[in-house]
Nucleic acid binder design. Sequence first.
DNA 1: GTGCATATTGTCCAAACGGACAATGTACCT
DNA 2: AGGTACATTGTCCGTTTGGACAATATGCAC
Lengths: 214, 214
Amino acid sequence: MIRVMITDDHLIIREGLRLILETADGIELVGEATDGAECLQLVKKLNPDVILMDLQMPRMDGITAIEHLRKDYPDIAIVILTTYNEDDLMIRGLQSGARGYLLKDSSRENLIDAIQAAAKGETLLKPEILARVLAPRPVAKADSVSQTNSILTERELEVLLSAALGERNKEIAYKLGITERTVKAHLASIYQKFGVDSRAAAVAVAAQKGLLGE
Amino acid sequence: MIRVMITDDHLIIREGLRLILETADGIELVGEATDGAECLQLVKKLNPDVILMDLQMPRMDGITAIEHLRKDYPDIAIVILTTYNEDDLMIRGLQSGARGYLLKDSSRENLIDAIQAAAKGETLLKPEILARVLAPRPVAKADSVSQTNSILTERELEVLLSAALGERNKEIAYKLGITERTVKAHLASIYQKFGVDSRAAAVAVAAQKGLLGE
DNA sequence: GTGCATATTGTCCAAACGGACAATGTACCT
DNA sequence: AGGTACATTGTCCGTTTGGACAATATGCAC
């Protein structure tokens, strides 16, 4: 039984989906949310396998919700609910970790197929969408927390170099003659400047920037 | 009844596929070819709905055959038969107009699913492939890596590359379709081979070895 | 058949990590 | 004097990680 949750701000859409899903074998509709924020609140309680996610919603949009979900609940498959003229948003959704997309005027059969594929960990793509994601995209830049000049201080660089050697915070602290707490502070600052949230990713960025000496 | 045609130069592959397809409901195996040129000759007579296409073949390779088929028989769905270390070729095949791909060691279920999806005009993609075609940069995991470059297995390399992106074990597990425990196993193996004991150090070693796309 | 490599998954647990709130002191510039 | 950047340290807490013991299955080589 695939546990499905709907997140869409349009009542009509929700009702339509409910009607279809309630008569489908192997699919159980466990709940609905009307925007991204509510979705995040409910997801823990409802424990869905698949979330059907609208993109344009009040309060918190779908892309943001997907990013949160991917981080906190990576096992949940997210299927984007979209329309024909939302292609760009949809691509961004897929890049954010969604496992599929569904046109809002999909046939009943397509709907079921997409949900079942998502639950299996697969993604069902229409040829035109496939062509689109394969096309050379202009896709700008990371809209995340990347500032213009993200240069590390000397101290931060020292910490990062040590971290790249696989040293624990405790070891780094001892070596630099400071406390572990301070090491953490420097790391946190590095993460922010690099737009990451783990030392492994920070080391990779440092390597890419040539900070680790080639 | 979905009319399926096989194009592959390996007898074993053809026989294996035949065995599976002949016992599948709704699928009819209408013929086989051993290379791209033969495929083009036979396709008119056999009139298949779906063609399973190998990429590396004598006389005429799969990519070329796909391009011809796209032009002359746009209604025929082409599913690429591929292996794990043919990713680059596979992407090119998709760009040439193939509607799906299949690992040669796919399970029976996956095989049937992919064929049925292709016949419906859809494409079934694994999350890791989706991530790949969505990747902002052309990933350079060359097929030479497996022999020349690394003592790591293909799988271990996949895990390591994901770890270098800052992904959690949970996320990596999701992306590769395995459990978190298995991700840990691969990481442990990587650590042992690299002589380290943390993912940050492993990423640094990987960077030094040039395993991360430069 | 017997190994060997590889891939997969399991549980338990201590240590490490990263975020959320912080505050304090120093040095430099305007 | 006020502002800014940097370095430093504190606690609390949930999450993540890696090690320690594993076992099973598959495919390949000999």
